[in-house]
C-alpha cells in the first residue's frame, strides 16, 4: 500500500498542482479567500464574548488568538475531511474511464487543505504578534500534532469518500455535521471541566488535538496527555481500516460513482 503511494507521488503532485492552479485561476483575491471563514468566525465570537452574550470563561491566550488557533487546527481537520469526501465524486468522469491508484485523489485533496492551513498560519502569527503572546518553543511542536490528526482525517475520509461515491447524501450530511461538531470541540472555548460537558474531551477524538495545540501555545505543557495518545492510536487504527475498505471498494465505486 505504501509502495503504491510512493510510486504514484507524481500523480498526487500533478493532481494537486492541477487543482491548486485551477481553484483560484479566474479570481482576483485568489488564495486570500482561505482567510475569509476563520476571520469572520473570530470576529463573531470575539464580539459575542466582549459583549457578554456568551461566556466561555478564562482562556490561556488572548481570546481572538485563542479562537484563531483553535479554528486553524479545526479547519485543517474539517477542510481536509470535506475535500477528501468529495474527491471521488469530483473525479467521477476520470474514475469511470481510467484506471489509476484512486488514493492519489484523496492525497491530492488533502494537499488543498494543507495549503489553506499554511496561509492561515501566517495570519495566526500576525495575531500572536499583535496581541503580544509570548512565544514558547513548544509552539513548534504543534505541527507534530497534525500527523496523528491527519491519520484520523484521512482514515475517516477514505470511508466517507467511498460511501459518498455510492450515496451522495454523505457529503451534504457531513457539511451539516461538521458545523455542529465544531461546537462539540473545544475550539472557541477552553476544554470543559464539568460533567456532562467534560465528555467532549473524551468522546470527540478531535478534541485532544485542539486542546493540545492550545496547551503547547500557552502553557508549554500538555494538560491531557492520555487522551492525546488514545486519540492518536484511534487515528492510526481508523487510517488502516479506512484504507483497507477504500481499496476493497474501488471496483464497486468504479461501477456506481
Amino acid at each position: 500500500m505504501i509502495g503504491d503511494v510512493i510510486s504514484s507521488r507524481e500523480l498526487i503532485w500533478r493532481l494537486f498542482v492541477r487543482d491548486f492552479a485551477a481553484k483560484y485561476e479566474q479570481s482576483a483575491l485568489g488564495y486570500l479567500w482561505a482567510l475569509g471563514p476563520p476571520l469572520v468566525t473570530v470576529a463573531i465570537f470575539t464580539f459575542l464574548t466582549r459583549n457578554r452574550v456568551i461566556s466561555v470563561g478564562e482562556t490561556a491566550l488572548p481570546y481572538p488568538a485563542f479562537v484563531l488557533l483553535g479554528l486553524t487546527v479545526w479547519g485543517l481537520f474539517s477542510g481536509s475531511l470535506m475535500s477528501i469526501t468529495s474527491s471521488l465524486t469530483g473525479a467521477a468522469n476520470v474514475i469511470k474511464k481510467m484506471n489509476f491508484p484512486r488514493e492519489a485523489l484523496v492525497f491530492a485533496a488533502l494537499g488543498q487543505a494543507l495549503v489553506d492551513t499554511l496561509i492561515r498560519t501566517v495570519l495566526l502569527a500576525l495575531f500572536f504578534v499583535w496581541y503580544g503572546v509570548p512565544v514558547r518553543w513548544t509552539i513548534a511542536l504543534i505541527p507534530l500534532l497534525f500527523a496523528p490528526m491527519l491519520m484520523l482525517t484521512i482514515g475517516a475520509g477514505f470511508l466517507l469518500s467511498t460511501l459518498n461515491a455510492i450515496i451522495r447524501d454523505v457529503s451534504s450530511a457531513l457539511g451539516l455535521a461538521l458545523q455542529f461538531a465544531m461546537f462539540l470541540t473545544p475550539v472557541v472555548y477552553p476544554a470543559p471541566k464539568e460533567w456532562p460537558f467534560i465528555l467532549i474531551n473524551y468522546v470527540n477524538p478531535v478534541s485532544a488535538f485542539v486542546v493540545a495545540a492550545h496547551d503547547l501555545a500557552s502553557k508549554g505543557a500538555l494538560t491531557m496527555p492520555a487522551t492525546l495518545i488514545s486519540s492518536s492510536l484511534f487515528g492510526l487504527l481508523l487510517f488502516l481500516l479506512g484504507w483497507r475498505v477504500f481499496r476493497l471498494a474501488q471496483p464497486i465505486v468504479g461501477e456506481r460513482v
Binding site: L11, L15, V17, R18, A21, A22, M98, F100
Partner: peptide, 15 residues
C-alpha cells in the same frame, strides 16, 4: 483552466 502543456503532465500521470 490549465494549458495544454500542463494538461499533458496531468493526463500522463493519470495514465
Amino acid at each position: 483552466l490549465l494549458t495544454g502543456r500542463e494538461n499533458i503532465y496531468v493526463q500522463g500521470a493519470i495514465m
